[in-house]
Design a protein around this nucleic acid. Structure first.
Lengths: 120, 120
DNA sequence: CCATTATTTCCATTATTCTGGAATTATGGA
DNA sequence: TCCATAATTCCAGAATAATGGAAATAATGG
């Protein structure tokens, strides 16, 4: 991942509404969720949320597909992985001991539950 | 790490000058680097860089100590780990398979070299 | 076609961030 | 004390981002 892409991705996540949006989309998994549902769930006007969706999409962190009248957004997991990889490279590249064990410990602490439906 | 802290940390990194600054401080390790040196290295006026340093410090990502006339900044590695942990929780919490192996593969690809001095 | 639903684009307003000149604070040495 | 050095704070202008009303676009079902 290039420096500029990383900046854009970080800027995408560096705003409360968008970070909430991103978390919700992560929870939704590859099934994704419609723009309108997302706006209602987050309590944000449709057009406002639309601009946030565009920002995340421009950053490459999410993608969209049309389904009838709705547009379904979902996380581009490869881009998320690339961002994490960029941070890990920069953060731990010369000092692996600092980040080793971080992801593993998280993985073990989660009992591999299936994709639970989001509420609210 | 709380949601608000994560937002602040992400916002800290979501700006080109600050991301470059952060990368340089990561490279500098616990020895850190003086504010003036950092400003010169990045080609940014002292006062401009000072405000960026304050932003990263406010986000908890870096700390400072005085050494004579200089103020030495260095990364708060625990905060960086916490941010990565937050992202991993959100990104992979319900789907561990997505991020498992990310950090490990990076660690293996780096031959555990000692903290090499950064050049310009 | 027409009405309805879902979403986006346009645009103006407000808010926030970035930047750097000038003044200020802190330290160490003569 | 006085000077030079290192860094920060103050401040204001410029640039960028966030917000939401109103209009425009897109798809579906009659």
């Amino acid at each position: 991942m290039e420096f500029e892409d990383a900046t854009r991705a970080l800027a995408g996540l560096a705003q409360p509404t968008r970070l909430r949006l991103f978390r919700r989309l992560i929870a939704a998994g590859s099934a994704g969720q419609a723009a309108g549902e997302l706006a209602a769930a987050l309590g944000v006007p449709n057009n406002t949320l639309s601009s946030h969706l565009a920002c995340l999409k421009n950053a490459g962190l999410i993608g969209s597909r049309r389904d009838g009248r709705s547009i379904i957004y979902s996380v581009e997991i490869d881009a998320v992985r690339a961002l994490l990889g960029f941070l890990v490279d920069d953060c731990c590249g010369g000092r692996p001991e600092l980040c080793a064990g971080l992801v593993e410990s998280k993985v073990e602490s989660v009992p591999m539950q299936p994709n639970n439906e989001q509420r609210s």
